[in-house]
Design a protein around this nucleic acid. Structure first.
Lengths: 333, 333
DNA sequence: GTGAAAGCGCTAACAC
DNA sequence: GTGTTAGCGCTTTCAC
């Protein structure tokens, strides 16, 4: 069994209150006493039991971050941003992967209900708007990267619409007119927002929107190839394609390459996210960068601000994107 | 404030002991009482406070997994394996990223000392063998993916030596004789083991080992290109290169491609890990697959077995690799 | 089958 | 500046 605060008190010849005081620096303690306590702590190898402390304080200083999986490498920087901001406020970030599984996500959220965590950040949740609103009414929560339509919940993400607009506008400025888009089937708000950006870029450049130029699949790599094949089967196929993710973009690049296309010449491709893969690929994939580190920092700052002020301000923060030009978009003009 | 067990007891007209019994199914309770309790729980939206429970039980059922970062996409499956095994035993896995930072890792390990977690799994630690031994004497810990030379600690990883041997032996059987290797500078045991596998394959095939055929850098993508350039500058450059990671392999592939080489023809490359990137790349990167899911399952099974039996069995488990043939190794014969 | 009560380790009044 | 003590929410022995 580990040493407790009592053991330390006895060894130091003081009361538990005094030990607690030096532990938390919560009140003045005579130098002599403090010294005795610290000596005893060292000798006994004492470390305060946080279960006791947290129970007493009704807080854990732990923020739970639920991510679908660690596969999406772009979460990495977001998490780093979260951690850095959290530690500045004395909080720790604990990660959990839900595998996009509703039951598992609920089980993890249980940490909120059973007081093992003070707050939660959801990166791509399975919960619907109503459930999120309920949750947000009772606990400090935030959405990250993926907003929920109709849910008034603190959320921070990249400017999806603007990023997509910028990408497509860039392609148009490069001389492209027939631009397809690969999006997802579900109701993911980020996909919807990016579709809107795509449409607005077309519109503002006087290019008519064509329903058949949008292919919808899943987030899986394989749907890049599938989308490519779909477009190629069209009577009047697009020469360029904007994808809602780099993974999908890589899928079309790989498929096009394997079919003998010269990507960046015969066909142009643009992704979204700027994951490591995009820079590593040959050819380098042109994409829209998300300010991951800043996104991570911002959510926890806002969340902790809500916790500390016992407020429930539900900001919707959109952070700026950045277009990353590489080699997959041909400059015709 | 949330409802407590007292509130439930009052609402149900029973004692807290009875509520606890139905909560934990720990002893027989009359059907009538159980019904009352469950009704009260539902009405009050009661959820047991785990801080109280855990404090009382002296356990949290939480296993902390400390990973360097979520960037290495191959951790993803390992984590899934850990989670699945853990949940079968009533445990949860909580992730934390150390960013390969000693101070941060210690701060996270503090969760072990302060009883916020029952056990920890380290995937690539900054601690030295002595510190690990000390830790292992006091808490249930395990190493995952990366053993520590001289530390008698429960560890599970892929058969690094065997995997490297298989890769190099395969390249030799494909007709290659001049095979370089890109490894890392530090004391990472996995790199050392893979170097040994490389040397043994050479030896057993009667090919003399050449010191200048080993390039050592960091794990960073950029060192793939650096290694490639180093080899090319040699008076008698290798025609094939085995890398200790897929990221590094992708680095050499990209660099070679950009220099006009036909990878898989003019130069052959083999990686290690079989991360998603390898299959997505063009050309597909030949590599050695780690049984990630199984690795994850196995560590937590062994760890929980130690916890439950209050034992400290320090198995060293090596799981089998699998060679994945793709397009970056030329078959000369 | 059920309740009273002790106590897990800690913090924070409160009294001195 | 320091000690005593109540109590955070829970489980579990013990008695009935």
């Amino acid at each position: 069994m580990n040493a407790t605060i009592k053991d330390v008190a006895k060894a130091a010849g003081v009361s538990v209150a005094t030990v607690s005081r030096v532990l938390n620096n919560s009140a003045a303690v005579s130098e002599a006493a403090a010294e005795q306590v610290n000596k005893a702590i060292k000798e006994l190898g004492y470390s305060p039991n946080f279960l006791g402390r947290n129970l007493r304080r009704c807080e854990t200083n732990i923020i739970l971050a639920i991510i679908p999986s660690t596969e999406q490498t772009f979460y990495s920087e977001i998490i780093r941003g979260m951690q850095n901001a959290a530690s500045e406020y004395g909080y720790d970030i604990l990660l959990s992967t839900s595998n996009s599984n509703y039951a598992l996500e609920m089980r993890l959220l249980n940490m909120l209900f059973n007081r093992t965590a003070d707050a939660a950040i959801l990166l791509g949740t399975q919960l619907d708007a109503k459930a999120l609103m309920d949750l947000s009414g009772k606990y400090p929560i935030a959405l990250c990267c993926e907003r929920s339509e109709g849910a008034d919940v603190l959320t921070v993400s990249v400017d999806d619409e603007g990023g997509a607009y910028a990408a497509v506008d860039y392609m148009i400025k490069c001389g492209h007119k027939k631009i397809g888009m690969i999006s997802t089937n579900g109701a993911a708000a980020s996909s919807l927002d990016r579709e809107n950006g795509y449409k607005r870029a077309l519109l503002e450049n006087g290019i008519p929107f064509r329903e058949e130029y949008i292919y919808k699949g899943t987030y899986d790599f394989s749907h890049g190839a599938l989308g490519f094949e779909y477009f190629r089967g069209l009577p009047d196929p697009p020469h360029a394609v904007f994808c809602i993710s780099d993974i999908l973009a890589a899928g079309v690049v790989k498929k096009a390459l394997s079919e003998g296309y010269n990507v960046g010449e015969d066909i142009s491709v643009c992704g979204f996210d700027n994951i490591l893969l995009s820079g590593m690929y040959t050819p380098g994939i042109t994409t829209v960068e998300q300010p991951c580190y800043e996104i991570g920092r911002t959510v926890v700052e806002e969340l902790i601000s809500n916790i500390n002020n016992n407020s429930k301000i539900r900001k919707k923060i959109r952070l700026p994107y950045k277009l990353i030009e590489r080699e997959t978009v041909k400059k015709i003009l």
